[in-house]
Amino acid sequence: MQPTSKQRLWMYETMVKSRYNEARLSATYMEGKSPLFNMANGPLPGEMHLSDGQEPCAVGLGAHLTKDDYFACHHRSHAQALAKGVDLKRMTAEILGRKAGLSEGRAGHIHIFDYEVLFWSSGIIGQNMGPAVGAALARKMRGEAGIAIACIGEGGANQGGFHEAMNLAAVWKLPFICVIEDNQWAVSVPKAKSTAIASNADRAAAYGMPGERVASNDPDDIFAAVGRAVARARAGEGPSLLELQTVRLQGHFMGDPEVYRPKAEIAAKPEMDPIPHYRRKLIAAGVMTEIEAESIVARAHAEVDEAFAFARSAAEPVPEDAFDKVFV
């Protein structure tokens, strides 16, 4: 399954938008944090996990999904959220802790929730698997359109909950897809030291479901693989496992000195960046021109800038708001 030109342009634009969004978040995050870095300070406090490099996974998935598909994401979720169609203004406001944010400032960057497009996330590694399986169960029991996706990292695949959820999804033949974004690093532990096999796709055999690994970090290749899994899920043929080899261009979190990462790998980051590759590829294929590419970039940046203007001017919650929404 190959993406159409329109889909490829959408994937490019969404990747560019996400990357610029991360750059603006990064700059905002650093405000008030010098000369002494303290993550409690500045207009954007707390932890910050950027998704630079992993955009192809997000767009390869997002191109196939509708707002009726339940997407349970991990802590590094910005790119995935954008690709799922999460409201960027309200997401930015949430990340900045504003009342106009998706969760009115209660959740922050690790917990992006947008019910309108069924985007859900959790900061606990691998624990998003169960809810996605349950969402798939609900769709099946209610006879509704819509499938469910859990997106974890390769580190999450070593959680017990991964095994439990995969087995349950397979036993009940649910419209579920587990997507593993393999960025090779579980914070500071490389995959080779944490995982007994090279490809997590092989684990699919243990659950009697198809498993596929895409090693290119190319949106078109990911699109094709995701398309097969999504078609299977929508046709009621049961769950699938995908492992997408990708790259984490930043540290685990902002402030991570990455002392554990080989110098050669750090030096190779520009070459590993998927966005320039894809841009060249689309231009070479005649899908867009340099000028069209630039106008896409400008449009994407403008949308992000608008979201930041909205978020930065939005009001903060009042302290008493903390007591609402504990219960429905």
Binding site: Y70, P131, A132, G134, A136, L137, R142, A165, L168
Partner: peptide, 26 residues
Amino acid sequence: EERVRDTPISETAFIGAAVGAANLGM
């Protein structure tokens, strides 16, 4: 069996699944 579901001994999965199912109206 559709509405009375025996599960594997996988509490993490099926209690997590209850959350996701409940999110979508069950």
